[in-house]
Structure formats: structure tokens, C-alpha cells
Simulated scan of single mutants.
Amino acid sequence: MIPYGKQDINQADIDAVVAVLTSDFLTQGPMVPKFEQTVASHVGADHALAVNSATSALHIACLALGLKHGDWLWTTPVTFVASANCGLYCGSKIDFVDIDPQTYNLCPMALKAKLELAKKENRLPKVVVAVHLCGQPCDMKAIGALATEYGFKVIEDASHAIGGKYQGEFIGNCRYSDITVFSFHPVKIVTTAEGGMALTNDAALAEKMNLLRSHGITRDPALMTSEPDGPWYYQQVDLGFNYRMTELQAALGVSQVDRLDAFVARRHELAKRYDELLATLPVTIPWQHPDSYSGLHLYVIRLQLNKISKLHRQVFESLREQGIGVNLHYIPVHTQPYYQAMGFEAEDFPEAMVYYREAISIPMYQGLTDDQQDQVVSALRHALAGGED
């Protein structure tokens, strides 16, 4: 089976982890700060906070921005559920903004229209989570301008996008956002096995997220309510969580980032080759905005169903039967039973639903060979033709 995504581990990665295993620290040692500084320096952010998952990073980002009961968080329906769930963890209400039919990201025009209506109804969002689907950045300049006009905070959910660029600058520099979040799950561009990171240029937000990821505990006398009892002393000054990253994960991350640019470059080679190989098939290939240099975590095709005799599900199942580990990113969040119970209807966000009925993620990872890619395309051609050679 050729998977849709896969980690790339070399001997340097293994050696980095083994070195930590034989060191004095398996957690709360020097490697986590080193990993944070490595990523922050690479993308051009002032502060980075490593945590145990991107979901944890989204949660503490929302809390640091003051999201609370009764507030609104808006995001895209075409994302993993964590992009919306992070608001529910804070007690907020959730709504969605439909996608742009070309980029599949949150549509700035739909956002503007929704904001105009929400202002009249006094239900403007406190936070908007802009998800860089597949690794292609949202139109952050437009979203940032709307944030200034309407007074909401912006989180970039860049779980798919480390190593990508927007307007020539690395995603993660927070030029148009308050906080950016990365994921280091094994199928992502670089991995720490499990892990995530929140980046910001705001020292106060960084300090707040630092507290929240480790039980709300501090050893910094400047943050305490009284003089320390002694050198052993700490205080819990907030209600936090155990969201820390281990030294083993951080060591793997530092090693992986050494190859980040090469990983993304290889993904672009594969994407260009896919574009050429799929040009004559009845599928829509990913469109890339000229302002973006995608991280290319995913390569999503959309079936031109009016040109084939097969159903979406039939093509998907045929590919799986032929040993191609395709997937679908994502089932629109507002169609999940938990969100349907809140009153959302499937057709509330029509562009998201059209996307869902046509999309298939085909294999995309830096270790994919040209021969394997040829196998993917051959299997797709077979599936689209209904099994005919």
C-alpha cells in the first residue's frame, strides 16, 4: 500500500533521539528550547512554544487570546475538527465561513460578508482560525485587514504549512496574525512523532501560553504573588495543562528541521510532476495562488463527476483496492453529529459540500518515488475508466 503521507526518518534523526536517551534529561531539558529557537529562527517569529500536539497549541492559543464562554470563534468547515473544537474547550460558540472554490481555504469575501451581518446582529467573532489547507496559505493580508477593521484576533492553523511561504516570507512569522500553530504529526512535513508549536511576536501571549502548557506553574519570581520560600519554590498562578513536549520529541524535531526546505522542495517536484501526469484526466488539480509557496502537505484532486461514469466513492474504493492509500481531507466539520446537534445543516456552507463530494487526497510525501507516483496515476486512470484499460 502506498500511503497518502509518511514520515521520513534518517540515521541523523535516530542518532539525535538516542543522544537524548543517554542524556540526563528526557523531559524539561535543553532540547525543547533549542527546538523552539530553531523553528522560530527559521520562520522569523519572536517566540515559539512547543507542546504535545497542534490541538494543544490551538487550545492554549485561544485561552491566551482571552476566548471565553459566550464569545464566538469562526473557522473554515473544511479542516480537522480540532480547528473548531479548540473554541469549544474554552466555552465559546462556533461558526464557520465557507471556502474559496479555488484554494479551498476560508474565503475572505465570504468572511467580509459574514462580518458585516454579524456586526449588525452584535455577534462578531473574538477569534478567527484561518486554516492553511494542504499547506497553501490563506489570503492573510485580507484577513488581517478585516481583523483590524472588525476587532477580532487571528490564529493561523498552519498544521499543514511549515516550510511554506506567503508573499515571499515563511509561514509562521505572524505578520498578519496573533498566533500561528504548526503540527508535527508523523504524516506532516516534519515530525516529532506527535507534537505541535505555537508561535507569536507578542511577548505577553508567549508568557501566557508558556504558563498554560505546564499546569499554570511558574518558577519566575516576577510572576509570583509573594516572595519565594526558597530555591525549591514554585507557584500555580493560572489553571493550566500538561501539554509539554518531551526532550525526545524535540531532538527529533531539531534534526528534521535541518531537512525542512529540502522536504518542501521535493514535494514541489512531485506536485509539478502530478500536474503534468494528470493534465489529460477528468480531475481538477490543485490551484496555487501566486502569492503562495505551499508547504504541500497534501495533494488534493477533485473529480469532474460530470465527465466520468463512476461515483466519488467508487473511484476512492478502486484506488484503495489497487493499493493506493488515498484519503479525504476533510469531512466538513459542520456535518459531524456533534456539530449537527448545535443546529448546523449540511448545505449551510455549499462550497464546502461541493468540495467534499469531489475531493480525494492522493499520496504526497517527500519519500514518494517517481515509480510510485506513476503507479498512483496508473491506478487513478484505471479507477476513472471504470476498470477498463
Rank of each mutant, 00 (worst) to 15 (best):
A271W: 06
G295F: 01
V333M: 13
S226C: 11
H297N: 13
A145T: 15
Q11H: 11
K93C: 05
D202C: 05
M140H: 15
G230N: 08
E36M: 02
L319H: 03
A147M: 11
R175A: 11
Y176S: 04
T180G: 04
I143P: 01
L63P: 09
K307V: 07
L205R: 03
T280F: 09
A265I: 07
A45I: 10
V181I: 12
P228I: 06
T218V: 08
A193M: 12
L319R: 00
V190M: 08
G196E: 05
A250P: 00
L58Y: 01
D71I: 00
D157N: 15
L368F: 05
K68G: 13
D238I: 05
Q37E: 13
Y338E: 11
S255M: 06
H185V: 07
L67Y: 00
P101Q: 04
A206K: 12
M209S: 02
C90K: 12
M1Y: 13
A265H: 08
I99R: 02
S294V: 08
S309H: 13
C174S: 03
L380K: 07
G216Y: 05
F35P: 13
E317C: 13
S177P: 02
M245I: 03
I362F: 03
S53F: 05
P101Y: 04
L205Y: 07
N105R: 10
N105W: 08
Q249T: 04
A250I: 05
A250C: 00
Q366W: 08
E207Y: 05
L277D: 08
V181E: 09
E156A: 13
P186G: 09
L26Y: 10
A50Y: 14
V181A: 06
Y339R: 00
K307Y: 08
R273W: 15
Q11G: 07
I143S: 01
T192N: 06
G172S: 04
P101A: 08
Q314N: 13
V129H: 05
P286S: 07
L305Q: 10
V283L: 14
R381M: 10
L319P: 02
I9L: 00
I94V: 15
S214D: 14
P137V: 11
L305H: 04
Q256H: 08
T27F: 10
C86P: 07
S292P: 03
D371V: 10
Y338I: 12
A359I: 08
V257W: 04
A16Y: 07
T55A: 15
G44I: 14
T192L: 07
R267E: 02
Y338C: 06
C138G: 01
G151F: 00
A222Y: 02
